[in-house]
Write a protein that binds this DNA or RNA. Structure first.
Lengths: 214, 214, 214, 214
DNA sequence: TATGAATGAGCTTTCATTCAT
DNA sequence: CATGAATGAAAGCTCATTCAT
């Protein structure tokens, strides 16, 4: 019994794969050079296609960038939302899972560079900033908030104000992202052990959150 | 009783002030838009002069940027170096003074934006990165290191390795700078009280540094 | 009976011809206006393309100029070098051939204007002057010198000093080039019959060069 | 017996001398760099004045150039015209005198560079070319022609056509001017001994011109 | 008169975007 | 689908010219 899941001829599979290759090339280039400094010609060369081909798949530079974000970060948030929706255990465990997944899937990959990029250049591209806020920042925050509400509702967390608590949970991870992705050449940043950092951070925070045993 | 100290004609006073006005305008524009995205025409308009006028005072965009850094950050470091050289008290007090001055003079002003800018765009402008590292990062680090060495030599600090300790002292301030200066419009960053942060940070660190009372 | 030798689509043929068209337009413009006064926009318009198109084929103005020189003068010198290398007859005949080819291929065409241009503006563009001296002046002189050496070695020429004789051979042709190409509008230069001039010059010089019949 | 002709106070004399200093500086700069490439700022610096001062004396760059030509070349032609008008000897002697003065006063000085400049850049500045042709080329030619007419009328020259003979007399001197003033850096032009050249040229030409002794 | 700061048109060069093939 | 030649708006920089002092 072979694996029949991909019955398309090879060239059609390639056709389907093309956008992914373009997005991967774009991601790398955006992260390396920033949004404004990224030339579409470089993205194209990196993907091994011509400049014009990019425009077959993406309306313009801005849409290309949005697609990169959607295909990666937004999708990851979507999965986290799914996971959270069906999760049945303790809210603390859910929170730990979400934060760790965030770290593993975003922060340790090129995608962290996108966050840095939005922080750096967001002001110059309001349309992108708006998009990023709505699709990433807001959805991510809402997810965290919803877990807090769930935990409080189930008596697993103390009755903190979720609107205040959410940024407290987000901030350290963002800092860690910046830290591991922002460096000038030769600018010796002190090394941070990300795993230790995340462990400590999550442990401490959850400890502070948990409702006292009745 | 008039104040006759400025006997120059109004026109000449303006001429002397011109470079400062240009630098101020440039600083604001660079911080708002970043290095690459700053158009010299906008700097000029902001200063109320024409594009060509900028070139009377600065050779090119790069030199304009360097001048902004020199006139502000480098100068502040120089003053800190002076202060440190003549300081006679406890090294812990000196360290607190330097870090607090750093905060007050750089982090709370537009100048923090320059640091953010170098972190964001440094890779795209190697010449600027080199300049910044030499004139700011290295000199700043050396200053901190020298205070550590002084403290250890005088028995005021434990015998830590200054090369390791220096980035530990620098990192949190830089993070705070990024934090307070990096925001996308409408991106609700969790609020941080900078004074509380600095107090806590300095207090904790100095506590850990100080040599145990004999 | 069709002519199938060019099977490329019209569009591709155009692409291949493009650089030549640009070089031709550039040559005319450079000769008409000089190097500094030539605006790339005019070159482009003359070639029927836009400004940006030039940059698809040539890195910048300087390289465009070098390409014009290479494609025309340097190439002609190369051919003369080839001819000289395989020539088997009397050195006087070779010299006559080279000088006449110089006249026919350079002096009677727009290319003479390039020489005038280098004489006029060379001092203002040291990089171009260096290039021209190495690729044209030196190679051309060396070619003449080598023929002299050949002739002396074969006993066909008297034992003159080739280093002295070479400029004596070059000078009159350059003068003639200047003469026929340097005119202000309405500045009535006395007419010179170039063929008579070249004939007389070559005849006289060869007469003076030839070794006395043993 | 003192020389009372200059009774002005020193500063007023300076005031009168100012235009001459400016013209001298302009001449040097024009000759060194060409017309288009000459920046008025450099002329001013060379004369030790400010850029604005130039505009007190000359309407614009073009008028400055014209003034340089007028003050030097045109004036020399005027003097030659004067001399010719009162000359009483043999026309051949007059011709020799004029040509030699041309050489001594123009060709051996910076002024020869002006001729080269007009030949090189004249096409780009039609207004200047027109001026130069009317004030220099035409007047100079007319002077030579008038001497020929005089000589023929007095039976001292053969009955040549003056319109044909004039350029024959002018051409070699212009060539010599170009030759001694046009050089690319490091471009080894064959040396020409100008005095020998002029002697030979004048001698030969006069020999050919003189009417046979009856 | 003399100054030199200021101007702005004009040039080279870059790059997102289009479109004929 | 894919190409890559072509476009043209925009940005950095220069310099003849003006003008307040």
């Amino acid at each position: 019994m072979q694996a029949p899941q991909d019955t398309k001829p090879r060239w059609e599979r390639r056709k389907d794969a093309r956008p992914q290759e373009l997005l991967a090339a774009a991601l790398e280039q955006f992260v390396e050079r920033g949004y404004a400094a990224t030339r579409l010609e470089d993205v194209a060369r990196r993907a091994g296609v011509s400049k014009g081909t990019l425009y077959l798949y993406f309306t313009n530079k801005e849409e290309l960038f949005k697609a990169v974000v959607r295909e990666n970060i937004v999708q990851a948030i979507g999965e986290a939302e799914q996971d959270a929706a069906v999760f049945e255990g303790h809210s603390g465990e859910l929170l730990r899972t979400i934060l760790m997944a965030w770290w593993d899937e975003i922060c340790t990959t090129h995608l962290a560079g996108i966050t840095k990029l939005m922080l750096s250049e967001g002001q110059n591209f309001p349309e992108l900033a708006k998009f990023y806020n709505e699709e990433v920042v807001k959805r991510g925050s809402d997810l965290i908030t919803s877990v807090l509400v769930r935990g409080i509702g189930r008596g697993e967390f103390r009755a903190v104000d979720p609107a205040v608590m959410t940024p407290v949970l987000i901030a350290p991870v963002m800092m860690l992202m910046m830290w591991t992705n922002s460096f000038m050449p030769a600018c010796e940043m002190p090394p941070i052990d990300p795993h230790a950092f995340m462990d400590t951070f999550i442990g401490t925070t959850l400890g502070g959150l948990e409702a006292p045993a009745a």
